[in-house]
Amino acid sequence: MSEAPAAPPHASADPHSTARASGAPRPLDLLVTPPAARAGWRVLPARVAAMCAVELQKLRHDRTELYTRAIQPALWLLIFGETFTRIRAIPTGDVPYLDYLAPGIIAQSAMFIAIFYGIMIIWERDAGILTKLLVTPTPRSALITGKAFAAGVKALIQAVVVVVIAALLGVALTWDPLRLLGVAVAVILGSAFFSCLSMSIAGIVLTRDRLMGIGQAITMPLFFGSNALYPVGVMPGWLQAISKINPLSYQVDALRGLLLGTPSHLGADYAVLVLAALLGITAASSLLPRLAR
């Protein structure tokens, strides 16, 4: 009589032995030994993107800010731009004044959004949100960078509104995709710096009332001390000196060169904007713990 065939292996083999053979950690092992931490260079961009996404989620619940902030640049273009184009009071060469003004208004509207960003972080401190964020493993620089670039994205939405208004008014803007991409980068970098400037001031003054007063005190000097409204050559000497250290001037120069094709210094403009954004992130990150005390 022939020997009976060997029984086949049981279908439900031990999953733990399979996990050990494949090198994968067993579920119970994770309760005793945590998984290996990711490298810092992988964690930081992910947390920056997460913080940026959290900030932008607020727009889904309340878009009023975007609508109301579109009024001021529209008034600048419709009233100030159209009037000074007719009287030819400001020398802009062969470029119509309305065309010359449009990039400056884009930079102005982006700055006005970013410069009061510190009020939001003070509100988060008062609500207890900031303290909870600071006790997480997320680096302070990631928190600040996420907020700064969220301000840049908000400013970019505002810039699109200004570009549409300018196009409807007949401003001769470029529609080259690469140049428009450069415009987006310049807007985001400039807004990142001004939002970090606001958050740095918030870390010094610690209250919304003081920040509001300082913000109102510096926005107009920054705007009028740049080349947004008039060429640097028509400024008095002391104002030209201020314009040369004003990041807004470099942002406007880049926007004007990209959108209108006027002579510009794009390499120097972007270098200044990147350096200003990095310095702003560093300063705001170092002052952030003062808000949580």
Rank of each mutant, 00 (worst) to 15 (best):
A11N: 00
A13E: 12
H16L: 12
S17W: 07
S17V: 12
R26M: 12
D29N: 05
L30P: 01
L31Q: 10
T33C: 02
P34V: 04
P34S: 02
G40P: 06
G40H: 07
L44P: 00
A46T: 12
V48N: 09
E55H: 13
L59F: 06
R63T: 11
E65W: 02
E65K: 03
L66M: 13
A70T: 12
Q72N: 05
L78A: 15
G81I: 08
E82W: 08
E82R: 15
E82A: 15
F84T: 05
L98W: 04
L101D: 04
I105Q: 02
S109A: 14
A110K: 00
A110H: 00
A110E: 01
I113Y: 02
A114K: 05
I115F: 04
G118P: 05
M120E: 08
W123K: 15
T131P: 00
K132L: 14
L134G: 01
P137S: 03
S141Q: 10
A142M: 10
G152K: 09
V153M: 13
V153F: 14
I157T: 12
V161Q: 06
V162N: 09
V171I: 12
V171N: 08
T174L: 07
W175G: 14
W175L: 13
D176P: 06
D176C: 06
P177F: 11
L178G: 11
R179Y: 08
G182W: 08
V183W: 01
A184N: 06
L189T: 08
G190W: 00
S191I: 04
S195A: 11
S195W: 03
C196Y: 05
C196Q: 01
S200N: 01
I201V: 14
A202W: 07
T207W: 00
M212A: 15
I214P: 04
I214T: 13
Q216V: 12
I218F: 10
T219A: 15
P221F: 05
G225R: 05
V232M: 13
V232F: 03
V232Q: 15
P236C: 01
W238K: 09
A241W: 11
I245V: 15
D253M: 09
L255Y: 00
G257N: 01
L258F: 06
L260M: 07
T262I: 03
P263I: 07
L266F: 05
L266E: 09
Y270M: 08
V272L: 13
L273Y: 06
L275R: 02
L275I: 14
L279E: 02
T282S: 10
L287Y: 04
P289L: 07
R290P: 07
R293M: 09
